[in-house]
Design a protein around this nucleic acid. Structure first.
Lengths: 325, 325
DNA sequence: GCTTATATATTAACCGTTTGACATATAGAT
DNA sequence: ATCTATATGTCAAACGGTTAATATATAAGC
């Protein structure tokens, strides 16, 4: 593996000159530039990123912490972030925390030790001031972690409003809401508040139940869905806080012979691919994941040059109507 | 941010002593060990991983290249690999190649420049000898890339056999096979060969169609499914090369009023979460993703110490029966 | 008491870059 | 011919670790 020194020797200049060219500082004659380029090509030179980062006291890694990579919503986040990070000349260090604070802290230490350029947090960690643990910009996605850490969210409150309005407009007389684990993501609770507000304004009765953290991670909600329907057989519309719950509602209704959308209408949340693949396909609230991720990555990149970034950014959501309503 | 030197000064020894302790080389008195530990704690010292890697000429990053992170099968791979990599003291650099050779090469150069400890390839790159591009162990998942690059696969041929046998045992009289893009993953083609062999042995007629690369990436197979059914209205069993196609078959049958499993039986491949969430749920061939990933990560770790690893490893698959058959 | 083995600490070079300080060459202005 | 800008290049010290070679202290063996 050839080094800067090899390139310098081969092209008859010093390492400083080569480095200067590589980093676009100072002046370089066209002739020298040519010589260096030729040498680099000939030696198949690739700058050692570790040495470079050590010297600059900053790597071009960006850390992304998600609870899990097997949850389809986070997959979308991972996919978007990876493309954006790479597109901006950085590299993605992926961390899955299982939503455990202990693991999140370990990852923070690890990322800090690798001198990452920034961290994007899509995992919980309520009320922990992580900024002390790392000397790099942090930004959280769809969660507000502490007053000082910037966040980029979608309009969860509005999402709840859209869902409730849609169900009511479609003729539902009694609604239900099933949330993910409200403990894990306080922001997402706003979906319920929006939903609730509309129900109350329109005088439509509703019930609400909350899944546990364990259910969220294992993605198994059958039990609570069954008991919800058992104890409220008159419900004709369900708004779920994520699409995975919605898919299971559909499954259970089908088993129980409840026809969708005739007897029961379902609105999910997130708009993951699953919505399209289900039969019937799922009406849902579309989160602008791409926009959110783009903002997050941009923030990290901008903060490299100490440019100020807004502390709170909110993107609008939209309702996507499919077969389940 | 404190350094080794700070720790050494604070505990009244030299950096070598501290480093020696950190790396568990040579001898350290219990007293010294205590002093150093106290100093490290007090200074909240974290070794700079970049410096360490530079010095050792090898980082503890492991690169994973997948076509896309939004495909549910690869999500599972990402999730498994991340956990295993972290569990072995490494960090995951995630790369999404879109199955483009050019991008894969770029990623290889990038990974090489970051002195990764190894690369796990779950993306195509047929017949390119990537080992020249990087001085680190490479291992491919579910693909055979070149004679010299080790791979870990599941038994695709057997998967095809299980699927066909199951459909025939369930009473199907005419079968169809829809493959992903056979161009992208030659290994997966063996699923068809296994399927074909059983059909021929049992004297069951079949048709086979192949999706395009574009369809694989966009996950939209509706067109070919419609035309398959249009031109072969007598098919009563379909074996698809991945679960996403299977979900769409179910969707289209439902639209066309073809009842599943009564009039049409469907077997998918991979056993991603989607199978459970679909209505009806999907019978599929289960790939032991965890085992495969574990083997892959272990291989990379073992090769750090130049331990030999087998060039080809194959894991068995199983059929998981659900509602679609 | 002297030699040897074992335990512990030190010095300094190296990993591959970046970069501030400084040197030299060239050309234009006076 | 001298002075000043401007262009081009060089030296050497960081960055934060690792590690081979070497020195010193301690205990054991005879």
């Amino acid at each position: 593996m050839s080094t800067l020194k090899d390139v310098a020797e081969k092209s008859g200049v010093t390492v400083t000159t080569v480095s200067r060219m590589l980093n676009g500082r100072g002046y370089i004659s066209e002739k020298t530039r040519e010589k260096i380029n030729a040498a680099m090509r000939e030696l198949n030179y690739k700058p050692n990123e570790l040495a470079r980062a050590l010297s600059k006291k900053r790597s071009n890694f960006i850390g992304l912490i998600v609870p899990s990579a097997s949850n389809m919503y986070f997959c979308k986040v991972i996919d978007c972030v990876e493309r954006l990070v790479t597109g901006s000349g950085y590299k993605l260090l992926l961390c899955t925390s299982n939503d455990e604070t202990k693991k999140e802290l370990e990852y923070f230490n690890m990322l800090s030790a690798s001198k990452v350029a920034g961290v994007i947090l899509a995992s919980h960690t309520q009320n922990i001031d992580l900024s002390v643990a790392i000397d790099a910009p942090i930004i959280s996605i769809d969660r507000i972690i502490s007053p000082r850490i910037p966040s980029v969210c979608s309009d969860n409150y509005q999402g709840g409003i859209l869902a409730a309005e849609h169900l009511i407009a479609k003729g539902c007389r009694k609604l239900a809401h099933i949330s993910g684990s409200s403990y894990l993501n306080m922001e997402a609770n706003k979906r319920f508040f929006g939903f609730k507000e509309v129900c109350e304004k329109e005088g439509v009765p509703y019930v609400a139940i909350d899944a546990t953290e364990e259910q969220f991670l294992s993605m198994q909600y059958e039990n609570i869905i069954h008991s919800l329907i058992d104890s409220n057989p008159d419900i004709d519309g369900i708004f779920t806080s994520n699409d995975i719950i919605a898919a299971q509602v559909i499954k259970i209704c089908s088993r129980r012979g409840i026809r969708i959308p005739q007897q029961m209408k379902v609105v999910g949340y997130d708009d993951i691919d699953l919505c399209k693949f289900c039969t019937p396909s799922i009406t849902t609230i579309h989160q602008p994941v791409r926009d959110i991720c783009q903002r997050a990555v941009e923030s990290i990149v901008l903060e490299q040059d100490k440019k100020g970034i807004p502390i709170r950014v909110t993107y609008p959501v939209t309702l996507v109507e499919r077969e389940s309503t």
